[in-house]
Amino acid sequence: MSPNPPLSEALAPPRGGTTSQGYDGVAAFPDDGRPAPARGGGERLSVVVTGVIVTLPFVALGLAVWLLWGALIQPSDALLALALYVITGFGVTVGFHRGLTHGGFRARRPVRIVLAVAGSMSFQGDVIGWVATHRRHHAFTDRPGDPHSPYRYGTHLRGQLRGLAHSHVGWLFRNDPTPAERYAPDLLADRDIRAVSRAFPALCVLTLALPFALGWAIGGTWLHATTALLWAGLVRIALLHHVTWSVNSLCHVAGRRPFRTRRHDRATNLWPLALLSFGESWHNLHHADPTSARHGVDRGQLDPSAAVIRLLELLGLVRDVRWPAPDRIATYRRA
């Protein structure tokens, strides 16, 4: 089994000060004083690849709506889309997020690898880059240094609208790399996770080839294979993308905040996203207690990711699960 990541180190602001000094929580983020790195050929290619990853599923969604108008969808397409959404979604929420990023549990090596592969098939980036970016987000939540805060451009209406667009998808196109050496040294030292990270391009191909092949196997025609690729491949990816990005954007702007978080941290609970995000939209508690394996702690708060972790624990596949203790939760709750 792999040790829990050094979160106290990875989530701490850099030594020697931070870009948050002097930030009042209202104004646009100040310039950190560093010159923007020039975009070389590799950087331009990265932007192009990011653009394809972001826009292609969205274009497919429009195509799917057009096709649905003509009733061109098979029951098997919907079932495949649901199955792959669940598999890749839990790969992100249980594997990438609660396990690898925050150390909410320790998984046996095969489970750790399977979850990392499933999360990589979500088309959201390689596992090490994903984890590093998210740890940086927690180190600087909603203040200078946060890679995707909706408050980057201030709290006035125009700045807020621009900030929402930035936090939802615009941040992906900024030349603002997160150093994995600082934020994910534990994963860089993990041979298995490094291998999964390097395999990300192949896993992107697999997450599209799999529904195409299954559609062909089920229907036996190019039409069945193509509609399966569209619905269980591209549309499924688009939906999971926007649900994940909505946690970055909407769950820092709209919703309730029953728990205290750090200064400037505006993470909220947004119940309409709870089921689609597998419990990730109980975001306020998560930011109050990031290592907790359960995010939905109040009555009626569905948290499918926590249920999966509980099942894995009962099967002996994970251990040292950091379940939220009532007295600990009480210390975070607002009076």
Rank of each mutant, 00 (worst) to 15 (best):
R299G: 12
N269W: 05
L82H: 00
A209Y: 01
A28M: 05
P13H: 08
W130P: 02
G41Y: 08
Y183P: 08
S277V: 15
V127G: 09
L285N: 15
R15I: 08
L84A: 02
L275V: 11
Y85H: 03
W171E: 09
S120K: 06
G40C: 07
N175H: 11
P6C: 03
V48K: 15
T55H: 12
V308W: 10
V114A: 15
L68E: 11
S197H: 10
L302M: 11
I128F: 06
P14A: 15
L273C: 02
P13N: 13
F58W: 10
Q74W: 06
W245V: 02
A254H: 14
P35R: 15
A189S: 11
T227W: 00
G95N: 12
A202E: 12
P35C: 15
P13A: 11
P272G: 08
V297G: 07
L317V: 05
A189R: 12
H252W: 01
L230V: 00
A199N: 12
F105E: 06
R333F: 07
S8P: 04
T227K: 00
G22S: 06
E43K: 15
I218T: 14
A184D: 12
P14L: 14
A195P: 06
L315Q: 14
N248Q: 05
A335E: 09
R333C: 08
R299F: 06
A165N: 07
A202T: 10
T291M: 15
T178N: 08
V131W: 13
G154E: 03
D265R: 01
A213K: 08
G25A: 04
R162H: 08
I128V: 11
G220W: 04
H286P: 13
A12T: 07
V131E: 14
P75T: 13
T141E: 00
E313W: 12
H102G: 08
G159S: 01
P185E: 10
T93P: 07
A118I: 04
G300Y: 05
R191N: 06
D303M: 01
T178V: 14
V65G: 05
R135E: 06
T261P: 05
L157M: 04
A232S: 03
L172G: 06
P14I: 08
V247K: 02
R257W: 03
V253G: 07
G99D: 11
R136K: 12
V94K: 11
R257G: 00
V243A: 04
D176E: 15
R333M: 06
P30Q: 05
V111I: 06
Q74F: 07
A64D: 11
G129F: 06
A209K: 05
H97A: 09
G42C: 07
L206F: 03
V117P: 09
G233P: 02
Y153V: 02
V318A: 09
A202W: 15
E9A: 04
R294C: 13
L312Y: 09
S277W: 13
S20G: 13
G99M: 11
L250R: 07
A189T: 12
R299C: 09
E9D: 02
H148R: 09
T291V: 15
V48S: 12
W66C: 03
A81G: 08
